[in-house]
């Protein structure tokens, strides 16, 4: 029987476990950082990408200002790349970081640094997770995040170069993924150990870059291996931008517990394909609804997502920094008025 009032963490984990929850949980597998929240918490980009206290403070805004059921302190997708030698422009207040130089020419050149977990950006995230765990205890679900080997290879070798290699030197792509997946697995374990309840696995197998067949050939076996390694650590949400209908069946075979999907996807069709093999989250549009929409638009989006059968509400991807906080608050308000599940 469901308790009358569950904690946020219980609510979120119940959704993952497929058990009854009191209210539909609202989470953020990706960044919830806004300029308004930065001003409120005095934790500004770019410092909040690599400073553990700023990371924790800005992540806490999601809970303290809007009442989200989760907090997530990894706002970009560049910490591993920075720790592994990519030259990074850390962006500014309202702009996310970007890679300036990719150092890895060949997969054989990669050597996993023995001090990887002690390198500054990595250590900062682990410390931020610990700070959040200390602040919230077991009240709130803490979501960690790793960049998967595919996206990490984009960063370290260059996106265009890697995509071309799938055509010209596919064996090297397999090698890249093989050597880099250890990084993702090690970092994932470290985040769970630091106190993360759940993990987002960002690996951009987007239809705009590769076909479903390419995912099946290169990435699916790697994802299956990674999930096997993380089986006992905790639930993992797979995040990939773009349209995924043609590869969702393959994602379901990867072993991830959940999928974070973009609003361009038909949620009903996605749930039908997933057929309870993965929990679906996301689907609330960022640019039209959260950035430019009204409170009524947000309410409609939440109602529509819930009616479609989504189990975990969340924005579709990392938020544009100028999203007004009132719209984030409205997601939670609208969620709380939904009938109990």
């Amino acid at each position: 029987m469901v308790r009358e009032e569950m904690t946020s963490r219980e609510r979120v984990l119940a959704a993952f476990n497929g058990t009854i929850y009191d209210k539909i949980p609202v989470i953020n597998p990706t960044s919830l950082a806004t300029v308004e929240s930065m001003r409120y918490t005095k934790a500004f980009f770019p410092r909040a990408h690599t400073d553990s206290h700023a990371m924790a403070a800005l992540a806490a805004a999601g809970r303290d200002l809007f009442g989200f059921d989760s907090v997530m302190p990894y706002f970009s997708i560049h910490l591993e790349a920075a720790a592994l030698g990519c030259e990074i422009d850390w962006g500014k207040l309202d702009r996310m970081p970007q890679i300036l130089k990719s150092p890895l020419m060949e997969p054989d050149d990669f050597v996993m640094p023995v001090d990887f977990l002690d390198r500054k950006p990595i250590k900062a995230l682990l410390q931020a997770i610990k700070l959040l765990r200390k602040k919230y205890g077991t009240e709130v679900a803490i979501i960690g995040k790793v960049v998967g080997p595919w996206t990490l290879a984009f960063h370290l070798h260059g996106t265009a170069n890697l995509i071309l290699k799938t055509n010209m030197e596919p064996h090297k792509v397999h090698q890249f993924l093989k050597v880099l997946m250890q990084t993702s697995i090690e970092f994932a374990h470290a985040q769970f150990d630091a106190g993360a309840d759940i993990l987002t696995w960002a690996d951009h197998a987007t239809a705009d870059l590769i076909s479903a067949k390419m995912y099946e050939e290169f990435l699916l076996p790697v994802h299956q291996q990674c999930n096997k390694a993380l089986q006992k650590a905790g639930p993992v949400i797979f995040h990939s931008c773009g349209l995924v209908a043609d590869r969702l069946e393959l994602f379901c075979q990867s072993g991830f517990e959940a999928f974070h999907l973009e609003s361009r996807n038909d949620i009903k069709a996605a749930l039908h394909i997933a057929n309870n093999r993965m929990v679906m989250t996301g689907n609330i549009n960022n640019p039209s609804t959260l950035l430019n929409g009204t409170a009524a638009d947000v309410r409609n989006a939440v109602n529509s997502a819930v009616e479609s059968g989504i189990q975990l509400l969340s924005p579709e991807c990392a938020l544009p920094c100028w999203v007004p906080n009132r719209n984030l608050l409205e997601i939670v308000n609208a969620a709380r008025t939904q009938p109990n599940k």
Binding site: L164, T206, L209, M214
Partner: peptide, 26 residues
């Protein structure tokens, strides 16, 4: 397998199929 969502495939006339293939700049 080499085609993605940025590529366009269709008949241009009764016996020609056109594929507009996209590439990232390497």
């Amino acid at each position: 397998k080499y085609l993605n969502n940025q590529d366009i495939v269709a008949f241009s006339d009764i016996d020609h199929i056109v594929i507009v293939k996209s590439f990232l700049d390497v």
